[in-house]
């Protein structure tokens, strides 16, 4: 038991070091990129060409293979930002601040993707591009939170203060998001209820569910890849003048 705990602590401490992260991520990056691409291709091809068409919606429902993963990823990234904010504020781990900086634009992009794909899906099925329904509105608010984090970060010159400021905002926002979600529920109108249930039986047929789950998995892998790249870029920006970084670059050349 102690050994496992020790290993986790060691990993956690290593995670805080820029050089360790930079070298380990350069090994992880190619593998995970290929993996993400393959799984994405598998999920999308299966979903678009080999899964049955929906009884009521016909072929248009296939946008679900983009929309649901994007929305799920967008929410999870915000959750991870809040955790990183907590880690930064409590243990002052500089990597956590860097993580928020790197992930916020990615999260914002996936939120926009979810909103746009939702609008494209909504047009033929509901007859309208946009509805002020609970889930659409809270996704829009999620986008506003992402934009606030990005804007707040860019307004600081000092990276340390910027990290601290966005950590506070990410945490307060995460506390507030469930409240916003609940309060937006009052006019829950057109949106169909969630189809994937973890603890109950899904209302979606398994032939549609498997490609969807694969797509969701591939989106998470994609976020992992994008996140690694963005964090490496940010590390490079911050540590450009440091010795270890120069050595690392020379070695690779």
């Amino acid at each position: 038991m102690n050994k496992i705990l020790g290993a986790i602590t060691l990993f956690y401490h290593k995670l805080g070091s820029y050089p360790w992260f930079y070298s380990i991520s350069s090994k992880l990056l190619p593998i995970s990129t290929i993996l993400a691409f393959m799984i994405f291709l598998l999920g999308i091809v299966w979903g678009i060409f080999y899964s049955p068409s929906d009884v009521t919606q016909g072929e248009i429902y296939r946008i679900i293979y983009m929309h649901v993963p994007a929305a799920s990823v967008a929410q999870s990234i915000y959750f991870s930002l809040a955790i990183a904010g907590f880690v930064y504020l409590v243990w002052k781990m500089k990597m956590a601040g860097l993580f928020i900086k790197a992930m916020a634009p990615i999260g914002a992009s996936f939120t926009i993707l979810a909103l746009i794909s939702g609008a494209i899906w909504g047009q033929p099925t509901w007859g309208t591009w946009w509805v002020w329904d609970a889930r659409l509105t809270s996704t829009l608010v999620l986008l506003l939170f992402y934009l606030a984090i990005i804007g707040l970060y860019s307004s600081f010159d000092n990276k340390k203060s910027a990290d601290q400021a966005v950590s506070i905002l990410a945490m307060v926002g995460a506390v507030n998001l469930p409240i916003i979600k609940k309060s937006v529920d009052w006019w829950n109108t057109l949106h169909q209820p969630s189809s994937i249930r973890i603890f109950e039986e899904s209302t979606i047929s398994s032939e549609m569910l498997y490609p969807l789950l694969i797509c969701i998995l591939s989106f998470y892998l994609m976020v992992f890849v994008f996140g690694l790249m963005a964090m490496r870029t940010e590390i490079a920006k911050r540590e450009m003048t440091k010795d270890w970084f120069k050595k690392m670059v020379e070695k690779n050349d």
Binding site: V141, L144, F145, L147, A148, G151, L152, S155, A165, I168, L169, V172, G173, N176, I179, I180, K182, S183, V184, W186
Partner: peptide, 25 residues
């Protein structure tokens, strides 16, 4: 407090999404 010494647009961008539940309720 977060946007001390910075432009006021930023403060509003932080405050408005936070106060959404108040507006609704």
């Amino acid at each position: 407090a977060l946007s001390l010494g910075r432009n006021s647009i930023l403060a509003s961008a932080i405050m408005l999404p936070l106060s959404l539940p108040v507006l609704i309720l």
